[in-house]
Design a protein around this nucleic acid. Sequence first.
DNA 1: CGGGGTCTTGAATATCGTCAATCGGCGTGG
DNA 2: CCACGCCGATTGACGATATTCAAGACCCCG
Lengths: 227, 227
Amino acid sequence: MISRARLTSVLREQSASKAAMIAGRLPLFGDMEFGGVPMSFDRNAEIYGEGESADYVYRVISGSVRAYKVLNDGRRQITAFYLPGDVFGIESGAEHSNSAEAIDKATILVVRRSSVFSTAENNGDVARYLWSATAAELKRSQNHALLLIKTAKERIAAFLLEMAGRLAGQSCVELPMSRQDIADYLGLTIETVSRTLTQLSERSTIQFLGSRRIVLRNPSQLRALNA
Amino acid sequence: MISRARLTSVLREQSASKAAMIAGRLPLFGDMEFGGVPMSFDRNAEIYGEGESADYVYRVISGSVRAYKVLNDGRRQITAFYLPGDVFGIESGAEHSNSAEAIDKATILVVRRSSVFSTAENNGDVARYLWSATAAELKRSQNHALLLIKTAKERIAAFLLEMAGRLAGQSCVELPMSRQDIADYLGLTIETVSRTLTQLSERSTIQFLGSRRIVLRNPSQLRALNA
DNA sequence: CGGGGTCTTGAATATCGTCAATCGGCGTGG
DNA sequence: CCACGCCGATTGACGATATTCAAGACCCCG
């Protein structure tokens, strides 16, 4: 994993030389580009921690990311999974309100917050983007809360449908995250997740091609579960 | 309840005469005022519904409000309670992403969205306020999701502490909402809420002065539960 | 007083969690 | 190339917590 000290120095360097702008031409959102640096994170490497100063904004280039909060006794609630193309880490305040880690080896575009914010001062489109991105997160969060009042079967069904939609799937979904990650996202235990998936497989609603490769044989059956 | 047609006509009238601006002088947020109208809503009256056009922004003057989403089988998740001073109904998109109802007889300041938005175009402070209000909602929503993975006792404790804090309490909290509202906020049943409150009362962590008036006898005990 | 809604309480059940053992894939090293 | 060991996933038996169904108490308002 690349330390935060290293990140700072990389960005300082880049800012001086504008090397990345010349080389990369990577837009942060839409077609808007702010001269960020693509960085590589190892599996399980921390990208930022809850309470840390929110000095950067991120975009997934490849791989996947989990954002989460933890209770003092260790229980973890994953608030979101971010997949290639997703922007995350935008904060209105000074600090990150949750933590983020790479799920697998991931490449993340890292952009200075100040670079985005100062542009937003004069550019209404950028300001609106920041707001609408936050509003979209809010919607997702509220739908996530709605998930957490459902039964285990319903939560799993909703999860599979969400992932199938976002992974722009062929007929087959390749999940990047472990059973523990799924459990912590859905507010269940790893055992309940496993058992429920097994049940769905027995009813041939889904089919396993390895524990993380899943074919949705009967999506409408899943949708029916999706109260 | 005042119908939406009536609301529209009230606001059109007001907009022409500016009567409310002269009479009311009611700021929407901070000291920013946009010429809204105070309106009265009966107990359980709908303020807006999920999916409706988000043409207005609201601020509680007196009384209290619940915002919620429902699953198609009727299960309801209350996403937030709004108390006097709280602003709600701000949307980045065109539609409301949840519904809102008055919990008790409430007076709500209703402001045209277009009036706020057009100001935000030229006024960075207003634009920033809109964004930071959405970001604050996002934080609350994520903490709410964190609530939903806790045990019943922990959820009740967190709820009591939250309400005690927001109701600017003396030693005594006067809850405006029913047990059913609490249950739907915490993802529990009404019976579990009732039983858990009874337990806390038996251990004299709290004391009842009527079913909705509660004294927090031992807040630190509640905080200890608040994992 | 009486009635309707809200709240509480009780007993039985169901769902999910816990604890524990086993399986299975995969990479490493002999 | 095969054996071992590790980590993740599955499965089973049991238990705890919250739900369900049902009855009764309380309280406010007419």
